[in-house]
């Protein structure tokens, strides 16, 4: 059986909120290392990969591998019933028909309990190769969100160019063009504002802004976001969570001329 207790419902609320417009029905794969989810969007252009390690829960118990097929719209409805600071416990039997969610207020004696019916989801699982990326950029997640939103007003695509000079986000559309360039930057007082660029060779790739703006819904989960790029491979956008848990998005590039 599965029993996983989260100190704050807010974490799961934010994760589901960040991915529910990209993917609809997903398997939450539970085993003794934690709860994982991998799902592609309908167009097979973007992929969500979530890992909530067992250390992110206290306690965490999962005796055998269980796949919980959950519709994220249903999960959102139930998670709205939890206060952000509620303690959340997920429970399921070994061959479950439902997943049980319990919300407890740490401050009062309220205890709410909901069951969500599970679905059989036949999901394609993609093997993501270990990649040594040519460029890794860590930057404030709010800054990345603003850049994506700003450029989307002009164009549907953005080119991301990373050189020794810095990283340049550029677009051009019907009304004109625009770009934002960031250089490495260290803020000792506020390290969450740092921009760190780690480059082994220059990269230039083009991506659809629609998906990037969608990924940025995860900005509330982490002050910093990490972008990993290599020429001609999908972009990795990573929001690191506590205890080595993470929410990652992969986006296939636009290619050819």
């Amino acid at each position: 059986m599965l029993e996983a207790r989260l100190e704050q419902a807010n974490l799961l609320k934010k994760v589901v909120d960040a991915i529910k417009d990209l993917v609809q029905d997903c398997n939450f794969d539970c085993n003794d290392s934690g709860i994982a989810l991998q799902a592609m969007d309908n167009s097979h252009v973007a992929l969500v990969s979530m890992m909530l390690k067992s250390e992110s829960f206290s306690p965490f118990r999962c005796d055998r591998n269980i796949a919980l097929g959950i519709n994220l719209t249903s999960l959102t409805k139930v998670l709205r019933c939890a206060a952000n600071e509620d303690i959340l416990t997920l429970k399921a039997e070994d061959a479950p028909d439902v997943v049980n969610l319990v919300f407890e207020s740490a401050e009062s004696d309220r205890l709410s309990e909901y069951d969500i019916k599970l679905m059989d989801i036949d999901q394609e699982h993609l093997g993501i190769p270990e990649t040594e990326y040519a460029a890794t950029i860590s930057m404030p997640s709010a800054e990345f969100q603003k850049i994506c939103r700003d450029l989307m007003a002009l164009s549907e695509s953005v080119s991301i160019e990373c050189t020794k000079e810095g990283v340049k986000f550029a677009c051009s559309g019907d009304i004109g063009s625009g770009s934002v360039t960031l250089r490495s930057h260290t803020n000792v007082e506020k390290p969450q504002l740092n921009v760190e660029i780690d480059l082994s060779e220059p990269v230039a790739l083009t991506f659809s802004l629609k998906y990037l703006v969608n990924f940025c819904k995860a900005s509330g989960l982490s002050e910093q976001v990490r972008l990993c790029l290599s020429n001609e491979v999908p972009l990795l956008v990573e929001y690191a969570l506590s205890n080595n848990s993470y929410l990652r998005f992969y986006l296939a590039p636009k290619i050819g001329d």
């Binding site: 252009v45 093997g127 999908p234």
Partner: peptide, 14 residues
Amino acid sequence: PKSQATLGKFFGTQ
């Protein structure tokens, strides 16, 4: 113009 690739081009199915 560039065209949108899909992930299947890069990631194999398991």
